[in-house]
Design a protein around this nucleic acid. Structure first.
Lengths: 224, 224
DNA sequence: GTTATCTGACAATAAGGATTGTCAATTTTG
DNA sequence: CAAAATTGACAATCCTTATTGTCAGATAAC
């Protein structure tokens, strides 16, 4: 029994090392490289024109490794999107939390972080924070979810036992708020940042404030 | 000299009639049919998946006529977009004008018309009033221009000899406003109109009001 | 070293669609 | 009716890209 079929090697035992890395580690690394390359390429030519080949070249990997990590282009798009947006959202949440309990202060902190990052990383910005639509229902769903998260960070939904789901009007208010912020960001980025972060934040904040105060006003009306 | 080369027929003389129509008229009619068909197909499968063939079938014309009127798919997209949006913008302008001089009344009138039309014509709505981005620079430019027109209708720019171009901040405010309205519209349409037109208009208007009052406030600050 | 595994380059295949070309049938003109 | 113009159907071609497959060379394990 000196020879053991690799198929029976439980995941507990490590696979052969290459370049000092586990098989799993190598796969994960390649996956990462592909995601980074995708962001780069999307930023240059846009997702629709980004071919698998071009992304693989940018990642310095061959197509074989593309299909090792992703079923198709769309899967990579989604992974890349979640990568960028997930990261950003975490940071925004942290920034808001650090700003304390005042709604205005939290809003300001989160938006400042958002626009600061946008200015630091134009490529991911252009592609992901902005427009991926009409690709497929799956992608749209991902985007929709990201919008919801974004909205919740800026204006945390009021927890209300009686109204588990916020009202339909509140949803439209959130939608409008996110739409406004993202549109502003898109233009700001594509015009190469003509205003200071501070100025853009102030403008974006004014739209968020509407969503905030309108939601309050409407809730008061309902509960009165 | 009984026979005259058709190449020398000046455009003043009419070409042979078919179905009671001039050659030019027939071409224009086919062009129109293609645009209508495109709107239909885009609304069903989205622009990226809309093939030339499918559009031609919907138009009951063959590919030959596609290339008679359009250089490529993108040209048709732009034509269709301008067709729908141009029409809508005209109507909105008229509605605003009919509402008189009060800014609030004009805003309400224009938005009401906008959302009413959206509800009446879901297909064009979904495709055009919302998202065509990342297709190409040309298409993006068209969309950008449409956004500007849209904004000017909702909140006519103050004519100011001293400040021929409105301030950069005002541009971002317009951008945010349009983004908010369009995002709201997108969700409203895709959720199959859960609110009344009146309610949606009220919510959209609250975002427009920000743009309006903020712009005023900023101008006052500058001129004080 | 020898063997098993992994990697990189690239060929082969497949699929889908755009664009152009052909031609018989139809319609108008005279 | 005969001739010319126009139309509709469809084939042929051309391209681009995704996806799979092959294989020689490199690397690690023993």
């Amino acid at each position: 029994m000196a020879h053991v079929n690799t198929l029976f090697m439980a995941s507990s035992r490590k696979a052969r090392l290459y370049g000092g890395m586990d098989a799993d580690e190598r796969r994960t690394e390649r996956r990462l490289k592909l995601i980074d390359a995708a962001i780069e390429v999307y930023g240059e030519v846009g997702y629709p024109s980004a071919t698998v080949k071009a992304i693989c070249e940018a990642a310095e990997l061959t197509e074989r490794y593309f299909y090792e990590s992703f079923a198709n282009s769309e899967a990579l798009l989604i992974a890349a999107y979640n990568h960028v947006v997930g990261h950003l959202h975490e940071e925004m949440t942290a920034a808001a939390a650090a700003a304390g309990h005042d709604a205005e202060a939290r809003l300001h902190a989160a938006l400042t972080l958002y626009f600061t990052r946008l200015k630091e990383h134009p490529k991911p910005a252009r592609v992901f924070l902005l427009e991926i639509s009409g690709i497929s229902p799956a992608v749209d769903a991902v985007k929709l979810d990201a919008g919801r998260v974004f909205s919740d960070i800026l204006v945390p939904p009021v927890l209300d036992a009686k109204h588990g789901d916020r009202g339909a009007a509140a949803t439209l208010l959130s939608t409008g708020m996110v739409g406004a912020v993202i549109s502003i960001a898109l233009r700001w980025v594509s015009k190469q940042y003509p205003q200071t972060v501070e100025d853009v934040v102030a403008i974006a904040a004014s739209f968020c404030r509407v969503a905030l105060t309108e939601a309050d006003r409407r809730r008061d009306l309902r509960l009165r």
